[in-house]
């Protein structure tokens, strides 16, 4: 089975769709730590890193490296473009299912 033409191929893969859904569910202006996201998704760190890189290259997520006290922390969040892409994607899926 191939992905329908209208659907964003970057999002249309189980793992990345789950990442996008989870980041979208955090709400706007919120970021989650990399380990927190890994736990929510039940993915390995390596697997999650690969998918986040693809999403970052597409401009859908931003990865912020910072320090909390003295410990380095990596935060992940959806960009505005990513949120819009996710909304377009879910709208396209619902259209395909004639739910809207």
């Amino acid at each position: 089975m191939t992905a329908p033409r209208d659907l964003d191929p970057v999002i249309h893969a189980q793992a990345r769709l789950r990442v996008m859904t989870t980041l979208n569910a955090l709400g706007e202006e919120n970021q989650i730590t990399f380990p927190g996201l890994k736990d929510l998704l039940g993915m390995t760190a390596g697997n999650l890193s690969v998918h986040l890189t693809k999403l970052e290259e597409a401009g859908y997520v931003e990865i912020v490296k910072t320090h909390r006290v003295r410990t380095p922390v990596t935060y992940v969040a959806l960009t505005r473009q990513g949120r819009r892409a996710f909304e377009d994607y879910t709208a396209a899926i619902r259209e395909l299912l004639d739910l809207t």
């Binding site: 249309h12 189980q14 769709l17 979208n24």
Partner: peptide, 19 residues
Amino acid sequence: DDERPLSPEETLRLIEEQQ
């Protein structure tokens, strides 16, 4: 395996379950 495209029904179910 993760890269396997999903049907629209599977996709919507996955989104709802993950949310």
